[in-house]
């Protein structure tokens, strides 16, 4: 593939010693709405976190826009799972969206007028501007989700990774989020979305990554949604692989022999 937006190369990642992603390898085209699907515990969130540098892989590597993440961090934005924070935190909607404008280069500096304008624009895009002064503890699930998306938008990135933006969201919020994502795609942004609903996925996305610890399929939506692929991802477990994973976890066994990892990168 030419100029992939993300390249995941032979990625193996463990959580509590148990491998949850195993030799996952794919490249993604830019400017698409990409859905990451798979059953519970299939490693979707882990994969997103590994791409964002939040989890260190046991082996393999990730390249974003052909570079290491650190070199293109300003062009990448991330929407974590809504449940990953305590919404009882003393802050209002604007405070949270402005966090998207924080910048490691301006740690002491106060936020500028431009930062505020970008935050307002982001809130407008998710139809949350009337709630700017609302306490975040008083928001509904769908509104919280839209605040997180607005925070990511405020970063003005080219690539967006979103973890379950449609989870626990009412129909109206789902509609407005989807509309937003489609609009972003039209502006040439690339969006990668962890999703849990097979029914809607077919209509939402251009490209699908089907995951079940190992990569089942990655490709245009019509090619990936075959009976055979879905059976491999959702029908029963990959018994040998999960048995091996249990074994690795119980013996705290290293997943690669020492020294091999570096050679592999070459």
């Amino acid at each position: 593939m030419k100029n992939p937006i993300i390249e995941v190369h032979n990625l193996t990642v463990s959580y509590n010693k148990r491998p949850v992603l195993w030799d996952v390898d794919y490249e993604l085209p830019p400017g698409q709405l990409i859905g990451v699907l798979g059953p519970n515990g299939s490693g979707k969130t882990t994969m997103l976190k590994t791409i964002m540098g939040l989890i260190r892989p046991d082996s393999g590597f990730v390249e974003v826009m052909g570079k290491k993440l650190d070199e293109v961090r300003d062009k990448v934005s991330y929407v974590p799972q809504r449940e990953s924070v305590d919404w009882d935190f003393p802050a209002n909607v604007m405070d949270v969206v402005l966090m998207g404008r924080y910048n490691p280069k301006h740690m002491f500096r106060r936020l500028s007028k431009e930062d505020r304008e970008l935050a307002v624009a982001a809130l407008e895009k998710v139809n949350m501007l009337p709630f700017a002064e609302r306490q975040i503890s008083q928001l509904s699930g769908g509104q919280q989700q839209r605040v997180f998306i607005a925070r990511a938008l405020a970063r003005q990135a080219d690539l967006y990774l979103m973890d379950e933006p449609f989870a626990g969201v009412d129909a109206a919020s789902e509609e407005s989020i989807l509309e937003l994502l489609t609009g972003m795609k039209a502006e040439g942004k690339s969006i990668m979305v962890v999703h849990h609903d097979l029914q809607t996925a077919r209509n939402f996305f251009d490209w699908i990554i089907l995951l079940n610890t190992s990569l089942v399929a990655s490709g245009p939506v019509n090619e990936v949604f075959t009976e055979q692929n879905l059976q491999a991802a959702y029908g029963g477990k990959l018994t040998v692989l999960s048995q091996i994973a249990d074994l690795v976890a119980s013996k705290a066994f290293p997943l690669r022999e020492k020294g091999l990892q570096d050679r592999e990168k070459l």
């Binding site: 964002m52 966090m99 924080y102």
Partner: peptide, 20 residues
Amino acid sequence: FYKEFKLISFNPEFAKVIGL
């Protein structure tokens, strides 16, 4: 460091992602 302390108290993962 008020801004930054606020963010790492609310959502440390996001702080890491934006390179803080």
